[in-house]
Design a protein around this nucleic acid. Structure first.
Length: 482
RNA sequence: GGCCCCGUGGUCAAGAGGCCUAAGACAUCGCCCUUUCACGGCGGUAACUCGGGUUCGAAUCCCGACGGGGUCACCA
């Protein structure tokens, strides 16, 4: 059997990480079975249309490498792949269900339903559509339609019996029909199908064999099965995925700025790291291996190893993984990606970006943290002289007061301001002075950086700063000590 | 509230009745390397939600409690 999976997002304008993971898994499963991965846009809610939203979906999926074999922009044998463009395909199936008694026309207005619902709830009951229009005669239906009364088509849900199905990750599921099904609307007043209906029709028409979606659909699956069966169609294999959480009690949310793919890319996470990490929330290869490229994931992925308990998206670990990916980047690629971040604080400062990049690559976890780490290169921070003290390096303020005046003329002498020269000259002097390396280098670095930790040692920082700035800062620090 | 799902360290997780004195990774702590930091190396702290069963034996099976999540739309 040819495996066909799909990713069917609704165009809201953003790609939720949970969605990216669902798409990832659907893609991986299709690819490892030489099957097809289909993209379908579910935009049956016309009120929610967002300009440019489908482009966000395309861009995100492509950036992640999740290329689809059939979709709105590239077509395919089952098109169109945008539900609003398929509007006319749904009604005939709904009518077929009406004929077979699995559905019926409903002329109740929203207000009427609301009234009855309120009455039932006031009496302490639980509301469910009361099949008010179920027994309308063909003549009554025709008359109401002719009178222009808006209508919907509702599913005639069974009121007894149970429905069972087997889910790949959650196992055998059984629901009592009376409890889990209701006469949901199939065709809305505006003529559009509801999500539930369109989903079933399209999944069948597009030959989807494996349905991957969030576990929130676990309890509504019986309705889908009822529809499949009523239409005489084969029910697909279900693979419900555990929720991706922010913490134990919250999902990733828009409000906290941690839900969307773009939130992370904007912060300077690498797509490869994000995809790699995301694959591991809810699935693991059964070995200790954690690093995978997309093709490697295709190889290693196994739907039977998908977890059934919700997983917390640990940004901490993502940052670590991101730093690992950054460390392994091609230096040129790193320089290119880091440059805009360097520019944020160093634009026009004439700093050797290439050298800076070498120094920063192993110290970058996410790109957005670069500016704060190199801001001192742009401007000398106002620091507390107490940081001249370092027990292990045998340094303190008085040591600095001795060392800095010694260093100044030595540095002044250096005409060719290269890192190597600065290193050689200073190290030679340290030997002559018979001082401990740290007791000279610690004060030197502090005096020109104003902070205890810097991306690079005294020589690297001095080089990056340039001769005149280095000397200027050192003199200012000396003054500060006096 | 009804129904459904889930429950191994702070987090991701291995684990499918004896191999568990419970892996590994992130985080955290300490040590080493080192002109700081980072990288890297080594080591430490830290978990089977609780209560009943079943069994010679349970993290693994059953029941219950508790906790968390989901779902009950002409939204998807």
């Amino acid at each position: 059997m040819q495996v066909r999976t799909r990713f069917a997002p609704s165009p809201t304008g953003f790609m939720h990480l949970g969605g990216v993971r669902t798409a990832l898994y659907a893609y991986l499963y299709a690819k490892q079975n030489n099957g097809s991965f289909i993209l379908r846009i579910e935009d049956t809610d016309q009120e929610r249309f967002v300009e440019g939203a489908t482009e966000v979906i395309y861009d995100t999926l492509r950036a992640c490498g999740l290329n689809w074999d059939e979709g709105p922009d590239i077509g395919g044998p089952c098109g169109p792949y945008i539900q609003s463009e398929r509007k006319s395909t749904y009604l005939p199936y709904a009518e077929q269900l009406v004929k077979s008694g699995h559905a019926y026309y409903c002329f109740c207005s929203k207000e009427e339903i609301e009234e009855r619902r309120a009455a039932v709830e006031a009496a302490g009951g639980t509301w469910k559509y009361d099949k008010h229009c179920l027994h309308l005669s063909p003549e009554e239906i025709a008359a109401k339609k002719a009178a222009g009364i808006p209508w919907t088509i509702r599913m005639n849900a069974p009121t007894d019996g149970e429905t069972s199905y087997s889910d790949v990750v959650f196992g055998d599921m059984t629901f009592k029909n009376a409890e889990s099904m209701d006469d949901m609307v199939l065709i809305k007043q505006d003529g559009m199908p509801t999500y539930n209906f369109a989903n079933v029709i399209d999944d069948h028409l597009m030959g989807i064999t494996h349905v991957m979606r969030g576990m929130e659909y676990l309890s509504s699956t019986p309705r889908y099965n009822y529809l499949y069966t009523a239409l005489g169609w084969e029910i697909p294999t279900y693979i419900h995925l555990p929720t991706v959480m922010r913490d134990a009690t919250h999902k990733l949310s828009k409000r906290d700025g941690d839900a969307y793919y773009s939130d992370y890319i904007d912060k300077g996470f690498l797509t490869e790291a994000l995809v790699n990490y995301l694959a591991l929330v809810g699935w693991n290869p059964g070995t200790d291996r954690e690093f995978f490229t997309l093709p490697e994931l295709v190889e290693a992925f196994d739907i039977h190893r998908i977890n059934n308990s919700p997983g917390i998206f640990d940004v901490n670990k993502l940052e670590w993984m991101n730093s690992q990916y950054i460390a392994k980047m091609d230096p040129e690629a790193y320089l290119a990606m880091a440059t805009p971040w360097f520019d944020k604080v160093l634009a026009g400062k004439n700093v050797d970006y290439r050298r800076l990049a070498e120094l920063m690559q192993s110290r970058t976890d996410i790109f957005s943290r670069i500016p704060e780490k190199i801001a001192f290169l742009a401007e000398m921070p106002d620091y507390d002289p107490a940081i001249f003290f370092n027990k292990k390096q045998k340094s303190d303020e008085s040591v600095a007061k001795e060392v800095l005046p010694l260093l100044l003329p030595v540095l002044e002498e250096i005409s060719d301001w290269t890192e190597q020269n600065i290193h050689d000259v200073v190290m030679e002097k340290i030997q002559q002075w018979e001082r401990k390396t740290g007791s000279v280098l610690w004060p030197m670095r502090i005096s020109i950086s104003g902070q205890e930790s810097t991306p690079g040692g005294a020589f690297e920082i001095a080089y990056l700063l340039g001769k005149s700035e280095t000397l200027k800062r050192m003199q200012a620090s000396l003054k500060k000590l006096a």
